[in-house]
Design a protein around this nucleic acid. Sequence first.
DNA 1: CGCAAAGTTGATTGCGATCAAGGGTGGTGG
DNA 2: CCACCACCCTTGATCGCAATCAACTTTGCG
Lengths: 233, 233
Amino acid sequence: MSRLDRTLIADLAPFQGMHAADLDTMLGQARSMRIVKETAIFEQEGEAHSFFLLLDGHVRVVKTTPDGQQVIVRYISPGELLGIARALGRTTYPASAIAAVDCVALAWPSRLWSEFAAAFPSFGANTYKAVGARLQDAHARVIEMSTEQVDRRVAHALLKLIQQTGRKTEDGLLIDFPLSRQDIADMTGTTLHTVSRLMTVWEERGLVKSGRQKVTVVQPHKLLLLAEGHVDK
Amino acid sequence: MSRLDRTLIADLAPFQGMHAADLDTMLGQARSMRIVKETAIFEQEGEAHSFFLLLDGHVRVVKTTPDGQQVIVRYISPGELLGIARALGRTTYPASAIAAVDCVALAWPSRLWSEFAAAFPSFGANTYKAVGARLQDAHARVIEMSTEQVDRRVAHALLKLIQQTGRKTEDGLLIDFPLSRQDIADMTGTTLHTVSRLMTVWEERGLVKSGRQKVTVVQPHKLLLLAEGHVDK
DNA sequence: CGCAAAGTTGATTGCGATCAAGGGTGGTGG
DNA sequence: CCACCACCCTTGATCGCAATCAACTTTGCG
């Protein structure tokens, strides 16, 4: 049986400041798993039996309302923790996590979370720092939803994505996983129709290039100006 | 000089599970202060020199956008911590805190936060639990802003407030601090005009009673139905 | 090749913002 | 004590953004 090597995780944010031996201890209790595209890692309301570390791929975290509307809370990139319901004092997952592409992840039983946090203070502190960062993200999003028009919200969403996962191509910065108009709509509280029209206009203006489940930002700077409201639409 | 008595804080959520002696240690380093109505406890972007515990009164936490629009992030009730920027890994306050009425609070230098969290694990855990709860609140709010119409958002906001600070009166549940139409608008991402019209309709329907900076919810159950979308508007 | 999923585009509608005007009320200072 | 004024609230009229409704096109996959 192949053991997991600590270099797999040593450089990732959640494990900064930890001793090599402690990394091994954690890895020794991890189970590695692959998740095929468009399947769930965990489901909203489900028993929070495990927490995860994404090693490769991209995951979208989705909340579904009682009447079936979907909101994409965030996208997870490699190196980030997900499903840390226990750290938030929950016993069920507050959202579903769906693999946007084929993914590789590590999983630990939730029960171990408090053990790890206590035994490895750096790990606990890093996690809480991440929670703090997410709280600020969420607040920023509330402000955005309260005060900004659709076009600026969509621009912000795209900028956040290229910052997180932008891959340089000859055309500009490509968002590195399949992203539909509907997905963008679910991130920004609008409809696929409105997003489609925006993309058309922006493409004409040379700000972006996009196709089926694919978006490339050609002129991030101009998109930023638009997002910040410094230009006419 | 009068010392602060530990019974002042022993029963409050942030201090659950702490030893009496440790409470005294914390109190020994606290400074108690009064804040007059409509003045700031701290300002957005300001150096986060202190964190606070609200002992009496009500505080509104406000974010202001570069173009001057205001969003009320939350109201703080007695027994809650505020200004815990350091716990979120920040050195400046992410929002302003304004006393909605005359308030009494305890203040500690921010520097002590990590000391307390390390020395009194219960205190740290309680705080992080609170941060987790706020993260969930914020997410719920994003969902709300993304998927619900104005009337339902306003209904939810009022229900949250009466849950937090509702005081029983002969008419129903009174929100226990001055709350203007503009305030409600700033909580829900709408305008005072729309809120005013809603209140008028709801008053006619017997759901609420309201006046100058005063709101009483007469029929919480019916308001909940409206908030959940189970009835026609 | 056929079909389902994704995207485009036009037409229409309506919610809620904005613009505008006026009324009520509590607090303050003369 | 009263008058005035700032602040809060109400209500009407209009407008525009973006949702909705509808039809069609494109694209990739099995």
